[in-house]
Design a protein around this nucleic acid. Structure first.
Lengths: 343, 343
DNA sequence: CTGTTAGCGCCTTCAT
DNA sequence: ATGAAGGCGCTAACAG
């Protein structure tokens, strides 16, 4: 038995032309709307197209036009809930533009990111959207070589107006969150920090520290547990914190995932949230509205940001303009915080 | 002010050849390892390549070879935690194969899926991996026209051995989960069902029903609340169920997301899990190990499945074989279930 | 309005 | 082992 792989019929534009009794250019013109064509011919051609099941060859087209119709998206983890919404936003921002995304993961590793960008470029993407990551900005610029670039998650200075970045004020958001805790009477506030090589983590830590100091409270390194942005580290960090500081009444976790770990640690220790311990996270992941109790967190409008970035690069590509966009952080006050009880 | 878009230098193979003082064919042979080339020339060429910063044009290459080096992935929602792991698995399964994924979302809408597949094909993907979705299989086959196809999430019969599918025994898993509850003494078991037009949802419901009936318990339509696989519907469904059946002691939610909603509903009603109400979910999402209490659920090895599917299509493309793979559902017994208390 | 003519950058016979 | 030549499918001038 021979498994004949079905031969790719691969109808060409020339065949369509022959079938319709016109020249290839005419078919091309109809396909691209490049010029007026008599209605009758257009009809013949369309008929031929779907009689033959013709699909344009994107390679051939790309080869001559130099345009691929795709924009490269460098994310860090295709399954990350943190970037997921941004990807959705990019999808929707690209919708109807004629461009489609080409998504590759960099796994927060500089060399992976580099390879990803190179792959994207070899696929001739026309613009780049970068979600987070560590790739130094000058290297990024160098690699991209003049392509429009839109970076999410860090401030990057581009000399060219065809590129932009959308950064969050992590420090400010952390500051607000901790201040909120302070306003509720908490004084011993622990922090489960993110990885120190991560700029977001550092900024959130800085915001925590400053909020404390602005109220005249000392910053105690002991009240900071080292985490890595994943759940287990939140659990462990919380155990350490509680052990070290039995008088602690609130915990600020540098992201929601670690807050979930913290929540579980507290549950295991028999500490109630928020009665015995207040807890706040950061990122407001989709699940955070459904933890028990729902988690107070701060939301970055990831989907909107992704959407805007996509529209930005499309605008650059098509010579249009987009209105500027200032992402608003939004504090979601839910039920994981209670006023400090004075025993 | 004129925004000069930086001119794409775009070094060509011909230029490299000139620079190195050899013919284009030689450069091509070195690039692809198509034939032996004298070491000295090879060195010259390589030097020229990175002196000029040459990057092969994938379009030109694709045009002549007909190979794009990419496999199309049709997912449903790029931000879905459910398919996220499968996407990660696909990424890892493709790694090192020379192929890269091209991911498009179908949003569970047949026409979107169709467009997505067409886009993928126009980009000349060499194989298709389909994650769930509704696209009728014959249409899929028709569209793909002989390309290797790998489908996740439903059983599809392909006459060609270059295609395959990996389905889960949803019914069996649901049966096991409910039986587990029955074994713990529960008799009044509610079910928050998924959307009726979703085959997974129907199968899970069928498993629930059969588990009951096999133990001689009646199937009560009243004990089934209609959900849509998202958190809010789990919350509402649970409220209805509890209101209708105060004697209910356990709930089987058709997926984890709705179980999160159910958990919150119970929390709001002051019902403890698992003391007052046992709760089981389905899918074992990454967050389910960190709910309070950790949720008992059943895990489909999404990442492994994605990995295998990717390796499968690569094998088809390269004429190799892969060992067959039988995904194993794994029950994760955590802390959201307690034996029924007999008051 | 429409057909003809050149390539786009690369790979692949075919010679040498 | 290497070069020359042709063509993959399409679009973009250039003529009509």
């Amino acid at each position: 038995m021979s498994h004949v792989v079905a031969p790719r019929p691969s109808v060409t534009l020339a065949e369509v032309a022959k079938e319709a009794g016109v020249s290839p250019s005419t078919v091309s013109r109809i396909l691209n709307g490049t010029a007026q064509v008599k209605a009758t011919k257009a009809a013949q051609v369309r008929a031929a197209i779907d009689r033959l099941g013709y699909k344009p060859n994107a390679f051939a087209r790309g080869l001559v036009t130099g345009a691929s119709g795709s924009v490269g998206v460098l994310t860090q983890d295709i399954a990350s809930p943190f970037y997921g919404d941004a990807l959705s936003g990019i999808e929707s921002g690209l919708m109807g533009s004629g461009y489609s995304p080409m998504i590759i993961s960099g796994h927060w590793r500089t060399d992976d990111e580099e390879h990803a960008v190179e792959l994207l470029l070899s696929r001739r993407v026309e613009a780049l959207i970068v979600l987070g990551g560590q790739l130094p900005e000058d290297e990024l610029r160098g690699l991209a070589g003049g392509l429009p670039i839109a970076v999410l998650g860090r401030r990057v200075e581009f000399d060219s107006p065809t590129s932009t970045s959308l950064a969050l004020d992590n420090r400010r958001a952390a500051y607000d969150l901790v201040t909120y805790l302070l306003d509720r009477g908490h004084r011993r506030i622990g922090h489960v920090a993110g990885p120190p090589d991560h700029v977001d983590a550092r900024d959130r830590l800085a915001g925590y520290r400053q909020a404390l100091e602005d109220r005249g409270l000392p910053f105690l390194p002991d009240l900071v547990a080292q985490g890595d942005f994943h759940e287990p580290s939140g659990l462990i960090g919380t155990q350490q914190l509680v052990a070290r500081h039995p008088d602690m009444t609130a915990i600020f976790s540098a992201n929601d995932q670690m807050a979930y770990g913290a929540r579980l640690a507290l549950y295991r220790m028999g500490l109630r949230v928020p009665e015995d311990m207040s807890l706040v996270g950061f990122d407001d992941l989709p699940g955070s509205a459904y933890t028990t109790p729902p988690l107070t967190s701060v939301r970055q409008p990831m989907a909107e940001m992704g959407h805007w970035l996509a529209r930005f690069v499309v605008a650059q590509l098509t010579g249009q303009t987009v209105e500027p966009f200032q992402p608003q952080l939004k504090l979601h006050l839910r039920e994981s915080v209670a006023p400090r009880r004075f025993p």
